[in-house]
């Protein structure tokens, strides 16, 4: 059974910049199916994410949540249907994949920092080699984001010298350095000790306050209540139910959702 925690960050959320666009579509997934060999992992996924939305995807493990967001930046290939990110449809065309990946940041469960590079080098690698930004400028941007995630003093250390929570904050900063329009979070707090979850959630909340379009696969229901404007429940490779967080938690409609919530919330 998946681990669920209810860590809450106790502070008022500043909602002034959290505006969901009515017209601008960030991600559009239409009738998407995916198979691993003969195993039907994602079935008939339809999901439209507007710019500025904060979406939390929940569900039991093996329900296809991670696979779904990994399809959005084409770490996984889908076999049927369409995925359109920022107006670019994902196909086998490498040019389009590059285009999408430049605009979509991703944060992984196990951080995946580059262990042979310093924190600063981790942050400037992609801006320099993908965007062609001058080194000095890239470093300035990197320091700006390190300050945002509150660890500028670690810039010249190596990932192995940092705690899990610090590593995950660096990973978020690394994605931000590419100035993405959309951020994907793949269980960003699952590999962390409980006392470190908070510092990462804090960073994620402040991102949301800035109006970033976010899709988070997470078991942090407190975060979902505080920040998400929509919660999606997935089971057996399909979207079972979606709703605003309040309604989702207080009044689940589908049997599976009820079962899931009764298991995780006491």
């Amino acid at each position: 059974m998946s681990q669920v925690s209810e860590t809450t960050v106790e502070r008022e959320i500043d909602t002034s910049h959290m505006q969901v666009s009515e017209t601008e579509v960030a991600i559009d997934v239409v009738n998407m199916h995916k198979w691993y060999g003969d195993f039907h992992v994602l079935r008939d996924i339809n999901l439209r994410v507007m710019t500025g939305e904060r979406i939390v995807i929940a569900g039991p493990s093996g329900s296809g949540k991670s696979t779904l967001i990994r399809c959005i930046n084409r770490l996984e290939e889908h076999q049927e249907g369409q995925i359109i990110v920022n107006g670019t449809e994902l196909t086998a065309d490498l040019k389009r994949i590059d285009e999408v990946r430049r605009e979509v940041g991703m944060v992984f469960q196990h951080f995946n920092l580059f262990p042979h590079l310093t924190i600063l080098q981790n942050l400037t690698l992609a801006p320099i080699w993908v965007r062609g930004i001058p080194k000095a400028e890239a470093e300035a941007t990197a320091m700006h984001y390190l300050e945002r995630v509150k660890i500028p003093e670690q810039a010249n250390k190596y990932p192995g010298q940092l705690s899990g929570g610090q590593q995950q904050r660096v990973a978020i900063a690394r994605s931000l350095c590419m100035q993405p329009k959309i951020m994907l979070f793949d269980e960003p707090t699952s590999a962390l000790d409980p006392e470190m979850v908070k510092e990462v959630l804090e960073v994620m909340i402040s991102l949301a306050e800035d109006g970033m379009t976010m899709i988070c696969v997470t078991h942090e229901m407190g975060f979902a209540r505080q920040v998400a404007n929509r919660v999606i429940f997935m089971d057996q490779g399909q979207i079972i139910e979606e709703n605003e967080p309040e309604a989702f938690f207080s009044n689940p409609q589908h049997e599976r959702t009820k079962l899931f919530l009764s298991q995780i919330l006491h």
Partner: peptide, 10 residues
Amino acid sequence: QTEAAQSLGL
């Protein structure tokens, strides 16, 4: 490592 590099657009 490959996935992180890919998702950064390298």
